[in-house]
């Protein structure tokens, strides 16, 4: 292995570690809501700094490699992809923190309804994050494209939750405060799906050199 290959492998490992923390953050934040475990939610909030540190560290590492190694071709695309991915991962973690904050607030009030679709959304988004990172690590554009297609499912669930809570709020205005917070959580998960999609699109660029952002699904 050349020095550059070792450095790129090291960078890949850091992205992988950051993604693992992000995946745990999503899982724990929703678990904190479903199991009404505010301590778990606090843990998510407290541990966010680790993800932020990775974000800064990976950015600095990418800038160093760009400046000192002047990479070209797929190495160049790999490094710019890593920079973009970490931005999205960091925002996913911020959304997990937002979910944890809403969970703490909701846990202080009686539960409005059993959570069914929110955990489902959470599972799908976690899988999307895992798969996009696997696609990045293995340079697997088919898996990346598959993740992009899954985003519709998240958007549909968000819409279902919104419609359902609208009915609840209309029939009983005393539920508005709690219902709005749940719609927020649904929206945060929907945003996580969007960020996972962004990562998947960047991975396709890394593999193919083709920018597919803003393209319609049939052209991807």
């Amino acid at each position: 292995m050349t020095v550059r290959s070792i450095e790129l492998a090291h960078l890949k490992e850091k992205v992988l570690k950051m993604a693992a923390l992000v995946e745990i953050a999503i899982k724990k934040s929703v678990e904190a809501l479903v199991t009404r475990d505010s301590e778990l939610a606090v843990q998510v909030i407290k541990e966010d700094h680790k993800i932020n540190a990775y974000d800064v560290d990976i950015d600095e590492e990418c800038i160093r490699l760009l400046a000192l190694k002047q990479p070209m071709g797929k190495d160049l695309r790999f490094i710019t992809t890593a920079m973009k991915i970490t931005t999205d991962l960091e925002r996913i973690a911020d959304n997990a923190v937002n979910i944890a904050e809403r969970a703490i607030e909701l846990n202080e009030e009686p539960q409005l309804k059993p959570y069914v679709d929110i955990p489902r959304m959470s599972r799908i988004t976690q899988r999307m994050v895992i798969d996009t990172i696997n696609a990045f690590i293995n340079e697997d554009k088919l898996l990346a494209k598959d993740v992009i297609m899954r985003d519709d499912e998240i958007d549909d669930l968000n819409e279902v939750i919104w419609q359902e809570l609208m009915k609840v709020m209309t029939s009983d205005p005393s539920t508005i405060s709690r219902a709005v917070k749940i719609t927020y959580i649904s929206k945060y998960l929907e945003r996580i799906g969007d960020h996972a999609t962004n990562i998947a699109e960047t991975v396709v660029y890394m593999v193919d050199g083709r920018i597919i952002r803003h393209m319609t699904r049939d052209k991807i």
Partner: peptide, 17 residues
């Protein structure tokens, strides 16, 4: 050529392989 070359030899050369 420097971002997305078609030939593997070109890619190997520009990435210093």
């Amino acid at each position: 050529i420097f971002v997305n070359p078609e030939h593997k030899l070109t890619m190997d050369y520009i990435t210093g392989r």
